[in-house]
Each structure stands twice: as C-alpha cells, then as structure tokens.
C-alpha cells in the first residue's frame, strides 16, 4: 500500500463523503416524512389513499433501488419530468425508505395492546389524546431500533448513486481505480469512509435505544 497515494486521494474521498452524507440525510428525512404520512393514512383508514399507500409500499419494497433510480433518472424525462441527479438520489432514497419506515411504524403501533387504548378512552381521553399520551410514546420506544436499522440501510444504499453519475463514495473509488489502478488503496479508503459515515450512526442508535427505554419504562 502506498501512503502518498492515500494522502493524495483523501481530499477526493472527503468531497465524496460530504455529498453522500448530504443526499443520504435528505433521503432519510424524506423517508421519515413519507413514513409518517403513510402511517397516518393507514391509522385513520382514509379510503382510496389507504389503498394507494399499500400499492406504494409494495412497489418500493419489492423493486431494487437501482431500478427505481434508473426509472426516476432515465424514464421520467421521457414523460417530461426532469430532475437533477441529486434530487433523483434523495427522492429515490426517500421513496424507498418511506416504505420501510411505514412498515416499522406499523409494527411499533401493533406491539401496543389494544387495551392500552381502551384504558385511555375509558378515562375520557379522545382517540387523539390516547394516541398522543399513551400509544405513541410507547410505540416510539418499540420502533427506535427498527428506525435506526432503516437509517443505516438507507445510507448504505447510497452506494448505487454512481449509476446516475453522482460523485458519491462508490463513484469516486471506481473512478480512481479506472484511472490509476490503485485498487487496494482505493478500496481500503472506501471501506474506511463508509465506516466513518455509519459507525457513529450505529453507536448513537444503540445509545438512543437504551436511553429511551430507561426514560419510558424506568428500566
């Protein structure tokens, strides 16, 4: 391994990391918004929208992100809808993640026994109050590990962004290998940079999970 090669490439990887992080977190944020919206529609059982949510979730959970990005970037312009690669990246990630988040929220809500809601109602709470004070705080605690797993999954999925010519980490590594054939250095840097991006999320996630459990259930 050549040290000076690594030092020379570092700034390029740093650039790529910042881009990956930016699009990745935009995608995660969108995913949370879509996930909450879907869960809301499902909980309120809004007709028509409810079926659309199911179609959306099944569509995005059962097609690869690669295909979704191809569709957004190459097919939609033919229908007159044009987006920058960056917007395609975060929107694609957000749509994929929204489907996963919705499922995670659902299982969190389902883990709360119906009688918890009934106890709240029997004390004169409205359904909204029961949701806000009794159901959601518990469901959030149950969902947190799933949410963190989704975030890590989404940030890893950014590695396919290179297909729509975004200069992310993966693109940078492949590009440099193509030009200078320093395969070992390039891929080592790639692994290290993914770890730099994701290890803090993992560690923060486990800490948050422990903390919420203690705060919520005194355990």
């Amino acid at each position: 391994m050549e040290k000076e090669v690594i030092l020379q490439y570092l700034p390029l990887y740093r650039e790529a990391l910042l881009l990956t992080l930016r699009i990745g977190w935009q995608g995660v944020l969108l995913a949370l918004v879509f996930g909450v919206a879907c869960t809301w529609i499902r909980q309120l059982k809004i007709p028509v929208l409810k079926s659309l949510v199911t179609v959306y979730i099944e569509l995005f959970r059962n097609t690869p992100l690669l295909v979704q990005l191809f569709f957004l970037y190459f097919a939609l312009p033919k229908a007159g809808i044009r987006m920058t690669p960056e917007l395609c990246g975060s929107l694609g990630l957000g749509l994929l993640g929204g489907a996963y988040m919705a499922e995670t929220f659902r299982s969190g809500l389902e883990s709360i026994a119906p009688i918890q809601e009934e106890s709240a109602l029997s004390l004169g709470m409205t359904s909204m109050q029961a949701l806000r004070y009794v159901i959601l705080p518990q469901a959030a605690t149950y969902s947190i590990s799933g949410i963190v797993a989704n975030v890590i999954f989404l940030l890893k999925e950014t590695s396919v962004f290179s297909v729509i010519s975004l200069m992310d980490l993966m693109f940078t590594a492949k590009d440099l290998i193509g030009m200078y054939a320093k395969t070992l250095e390039c891929l080592t840097l790639l692994v290290v940079f993914y770890l730099i991006m994701l290890l803090p999320v993992s560690v923060f996630g486990s800490w948050l999970e422990r903390r919420m459990r203690r705060a919520e259930f005194g355990a």
Binding site: I115, Q116, E118, S119, P137, Q138, E216, F217
Partner: peptide, 12 residues
C-alpha cells in the same frame, strides 16, 4: 370509571 382484569396501567 372502568377497571379492567389486567389493570393496564400505562407502562411508560
């Protein structure tokens, strides 16, 4: 007022 068999206090 209602009290259930399984008490159902709010665990959080």
């Amino acid at each position: 007022g209602m009290v259930f068999q399984s008490y159902d206090l709010f665990p959080h």
